[in-house]
Simulated assay, not measured.
Amino acid sequence: MDETGQQQPNFDDDPAAGFLAREQDELQGIMSDDAPLSTDVAPPTGEGLQSGSGLFGSQLADEQPVSSDPYSFISQMDETPECIRQWKQEQEKMLAEKDGEEAEALEELRANAKKELEDWYTHFEDQLKHTKESNRQAEEAFIEERDNTTPGHEWEKVANICDFNPKSNKNTKDVSRMRSMFLQLKQTPPVKA
């Protein structure tokens, strides 16, 4: 029981209801007995606003029609400030300009890439043509030298085919003995009996 002799309800489950009940008890003496405070607060409905009940119901009913949504007046009052609208417009313009610049840069990059690819293919074709021509010339020279049957020049043919540079290491096997034998035979050819 409290000071006035009324039994207090148990507000252990809902602390907000307990707070409201204590405040109601404190304000009981200030307010008239005709309008007791209620702990159950519900948002105003559209019907209450149209009928003129509530704190501002008569003023809102006269000014504008009320929708069935009790919070629609908040969305009507929430207008975007002018500076934010200007900022959004400037941002949209800036983004549109950047998109245009990006599209131009992308198109330019594509054109450059296409030109470089064409140049690369042209250079590749020229290089391939030059390599084929030099290979044909080398093959013709090799065939001419191979078919040359001048007596006494056999070891010169062998020496042209072999690589006598000791620094080049194309083979993994040791061919130094063979190399020395070929050089010895080239300098002193064997005598036919």
Rank of each mutant, 00 (worst) to 15 (best):
E140Y: 11
K170F: 11
D99T: 11
D33W: 06
Q127E: 12
E3G: 10
D147W: 02
M1G: 15
E144Q: 14
K129H: 09
P81D: 11
E97M: 13
E63I: 10
A17I: 05
L27H: 10
Q127V: 02
K167E: 15
F142C: 01
L27P: 04
I30N: 06
R110W: 00
N135L: 12
E26A: 12
P190C: 08
N148W: 00
Y71A: 14
D69F: 05
A141V: 08
D12S: 10
Q127A: 04
Q187N: 10
S180P: 03
Q137Y: 02
D33K: 09
L37I: 14
S176N: 11
E139W: 01
L117M: 10
S53A: 13
D25M: 13
S38A: 10
Q28M: 01
R110K: 15
E79T: 13
T80H: 00
A193G: 06
V158S: 05
L109H: 14
P65H: 05
I161D: 00
R85Y: 00
E82G: 08
P15Q: 06
R146Q: 02
W87C: 05
R177A: 14
K167S: 07
A141L: 07
T150M: 05
L183E: 13
S68L: 09
K186L: 14
E92I: 11
N135V: 03
Q127P: 00
L49P: 00
A159R: 01
R146M: 02
A96K: 15
A35I: 10
W120D: 06
A141C: 05
V41R: 11
T131G: 04
E145F: 06
S38D: 14
P81Y: 07
P65C: 00
P9G: 08
D14I: 07
W120E: 06
Q91G: 03
T4V: 05
V66Q: 13
N165L: 09
V191P: 04
E92Q: 14
L117F: 08
A16S: 06
Q86S: 08
K98T: 00
H130C: 08
D174Y: 09
F182S: 03
D78V: 05
H123F: 07
R110P: 03
Y121E: 15
A96I: 01
A193V: 07
D12R: 07
R136P: 03
R179Q: 12
E92C: 01
L185W: 05
P44I: 09
A42C: 08
H123S: 12
E108W: 01
S51A: 11
M31F: 05
E63W: 07
R85Q: 13
S180F: 04
A61C: 08
F56Y: 11
M181I: 10
K167D: 12
T150I: 07
D147Q: 09
D13Q: 10
P65N: 04
F124Q: 13
C83R: 05
D99A: 15
E104T: 13
S32K: 07
A105R: 11
